[in-house]
């Protein structure tokens, strides 16, 4: 599976902002990783890449936070504290069907509630190297296969340019 190795927070920001440039309306991204892996941090940089100036905070409490001011609207959803049953009644389809970018943290808590097509990003951490991350990309649907290829090309170009 396509994987990007990251050494620092700065690189995470670069990766997220590169992805932000490539996103189109009706995109759905699922972020997986343990508590503290950096899902919200990644989303913060993604939001910045979309041109959202407001601070993106954890949506655990209200479950969904909406940001309308960027190139595309961002819907940030966190299913951490909900079991699948509670998610069904949230009508997440309303977000998937909106012409924006939906980012879901802990989507694995409610696999049935995710759209068939989405980009799955798994963030791996390493106990011995706390700043190192591995981002593993998985496309659910054709649209996202192309997106992953573009992302990796762009990101590597970016790194070379530095």
């Amino acid at each position: 599976m396509p994987t990007i190795h990251i050494e620092s927070l700065d690189e995470t920001a670069t990766l997220a902002q590169t992805l932000a440039q490539l996103l189109t309306p009706y995109s759905v991204i699922c972020l997986e990783g343990t508590l503290g892996a950096g899902k919200t941090t990644f989303t913060q940089s993604l939001a910045a890449g979309l041109g959202i100036r407001r601070a993106v905070k954890s949506p655990s409490y209200t479950l969904v936070r909406e940001y309308e001011e960027g190139r595309l609207p961002l819907y940030h959803i966190d299913l951490y504290r909900l079991e699948e049953a509670a998610v069904e009644d949230l009508y997440l389809e309303d977000y998937y069907e909106s012409p924006g970018v939906t980012v879901i943290e802990w989507g694995s808590n409610a696999p049935e509630e995710l759209p068939k097509e989405h980009l799955l990003i798994e963030i791996k951490t390493f106990a011995e190297q706390p700043t190192v991350r591995e981002f593993i990309f998985q496309a659910k649907g054709n649209k996202y296969e192309r997106l992953i290829q573009q992302l990796i090309d762009e990101y590597l170009k970016h790194k070379k340019g530095e």
Partner: peptide, 16 residues
Amino acid sequence: ETRDDAVGEAYDKIGR
């Protein structure tokens, strides 16, 4: 203000 988790939320999460 907090840049990520609210303090009460952090309490609940580590509580879990």
